[in-house]
Design a protein around this nucleic acid. Structure first.
Lengths: 350, 350
DNA sequence: TCTGGGAATGAAAACGTTTTAAATTTTAAC
DNA sequence: GTTAAAATTTAAAACGTTTTCATTCCCAGA
């Protein structure tokens, strides 16, 4: 019988595993340490000597060790996942995509990942949130299109689940949020129309149910009342509404007496609809009427030099959303962070 | 001493757990079965008697049991996650969002979830895929904007990782894909322009690097050669390129002699840019020139009644992508499924 | 020389599931 | 009434971590 072979230089140590991937045990065997110590060393626990820590890190790097997320998740109860509730609406072109990119950017160097939980049209908008919580699919939640009395906010507050929303609720319930200053957007947009000599202005609202529309309305009304001119507030359409609704409205409105000669549009979609409807009625942009629109893509800038635009940086918003949510997850007792992002106005302010 | 209390009606059984949530053990205790049996019963293993299976299912439902995904994942090595690689490009408005919604729809009644792995502009487009595989973050991958010789395809094939792509490679490497029939789109679009009496047509290409652009070019050239008219192939812009590029090009081109009087546009963005550039040069849509454009939103339909459009249903594509990928994950040896989705042409075909 | 105490490391249990192999019960066959 | 086979059920190990508690080691202080 040959004598039992002794491992040389560690190569013959039994470090093979079922699934082939190196684990803490692999490192432990190589380093001649206990799994416990390796685990601690990798998380830089102070009780482990600096020398050991460095050695373990080095070995881990050399053999390409990557922690098993499922095991960590099982043991710690943390998912290292952030979820975003998606709505199938886009008043503004690229809304969803831009926000998601921003969030992803904030998560880039962290162990967190982003999962998407779409709100289907058939479901209430709190349903996806409930699902996430029940199944413990994420450590935190992000959502957009916040309503004044938002069912999701109530649900998440009750559940004590970390979240942040894009947009505010009516009564500023206690939670972090990131919002765009829609009041200022609408106020400056309206003033711009007035400054251009328009005397009957209109603001297009996608839906009064959303808080941001209220802010827009408020900004609009403030500017209008300061000057005391005539106004109009059609409430219409987003990208999913039959495209003709707003356009038909605008067309018929343009023909009637006392038609608006200035429009505040909250997105590319409504701006294009207005242009189209007015053009159907024989009205020409810039000479017969003006538009100030919010945009996040560069569609309008591209299309018409005469449309004044105010930009909303949704990628930046997403980045803030992600960053603040992570803070909140890791320190639930910290103070709520609120962020109000300023409009970028692409025309000279009077 | 009182006699040791016996559980009545199951309420006093010790079924409390650290984290409060019911587990297999909870059910096992209530049902007076072993954890093994419960596990099997819930997955409807044939060896468990029908009666037991039903009873276990009932109890699970009653106490609101939900399996711990981390534990399942750890044990089985399956993540129950599908990842999508996102590109920050959108030649077509709502591209990303629509595809994602489709995928989510396909995943809805399954245990699978969708995570997003964005390709940042700074990285190669295979990097995100590598990351997913290395960290074992998903069981399958979906990506878009496939190139003729796609680095991601090569990587994933080598790794033996299940995936499906939107778009084809050049040599139809062995893997499932879902694609839109861009040849037919371009062919019919071009023929439409010709039928309208246009004699010098142009096709706008976002980038020759992408396979779908090659198909568009091929469809365009086929139609052009059939008739033998003059043509032009400017290669330009997507949503992230400085908006002026194409527009400036079109403007200067429109002024020169022999300018195109018909444009095939692969998306809303390029269509708007053409309209804008031509309008700068004093040309009017429909009278001076025509456009046939692909769209997935309803932006163009809304804007100009005179732009002929061909629709691409990206949500349907996403649904197919999700569905086929799941099949592939659960049966890696099945034959590759290929799907070529037909264009929806919104004008009468001659 | 012994003791106490901090610094560093380790053993073992646990998270909740699946799965292998074994044990038990039931049924069928004689 | 026995026994083999089939039908059910179970015990225990394992997946790869983290964490509680214990252990070892080393050195200062007496």
């Amino acid at each position: 019988m040959t004598e039992p072979s002794r491992p040389h230089r560690g190569e013959n140590l039994d470090i093979t595993h079922k699934r082939g991937k190196p684990t803490l045990r692999t490192i432990a065997t190589i380093a001649g340490l206990a799994v416990t110590t390796v685990s601690r060393a990798l998380s830089d626990a102070p009780q482990i000597s600096l020398e050991t820590r460095q050695r373990v890190h080095r070995i881990a790097r050399e053999i390409g060790y990557l922690p098993d997320r499922a095991a960590q998740r099982l043991k710690t109860g943390r998912t290292n996942v952030v979820a975003i509730l998606l709505d199938p609406h886009e008043e503004v072109v690229g809304f969803t995509t831009s926000i998601m990119y921003g969030i992803a950017k904030a998560l880039k160097e962290t162990p967190y990942h982003l999962i998407v939980a779409p709100n289907f049209l058939s479901t209430t908008n709190a349903e996806a949130a409930e699902y996430i919580i029940r199944n413990h699919l994420a450590d935190g939640l992000i959502f957009t299109r916040t309503e004044p009395l938002d069912a999701r906010v109530r649900l998440l507050l009750e559940a004590g689940f970390p979240f942040i929303c894009h947009g505010r609720t009516e009564f500023s319930t206690p939670h972090p949020y990131v919002d765009y200053d829609n009041f200022t957007f609408a106020y400056e947009a309206t003033r711009r129309l007035i400054a251009k000599g328009r005397t009957k202005v209109a603001v297009i609202l996608p839906s009064k149910r959303l808080t941001f529309c209220q802010h827009i309305l408020h900004g609009f009304m403030t500017a209008v009342r300061e000057v005391g001119i005539a106004y109009e507030v059609p409430e219409i359409v987003d990208l999913d509404t039959p495209a003709d609704v707003l356009r038909d409205f605008i067309r018929s409105r343009a023909a009637a007496p006392g038609a608006p000669d200035g429009f505040v549009c909250p997105g590319e979609v409504s701006a294009l609809a207005v242009i189209s409807g007015m053009s159907d009625a024989g009205r020409t942009l810039a000479s017969d009427y003006d538009i100030v629109a919010k945009e996040t893509s560069r569609l309008l800038t591209q299309l018409q030099p005469k449309v004044d635009t105010i930009h909303e940086d949704l990628t930046a918003a997403g980045e803030d959303l992600g960053r603040i949510l992570l803070q909140r997850i890791n320190n639930p007792d910290a103070e709520d962070l609120h962020l109000l992002l300023p409009p970028q106005i692409n025309f000279p302010i009077g």
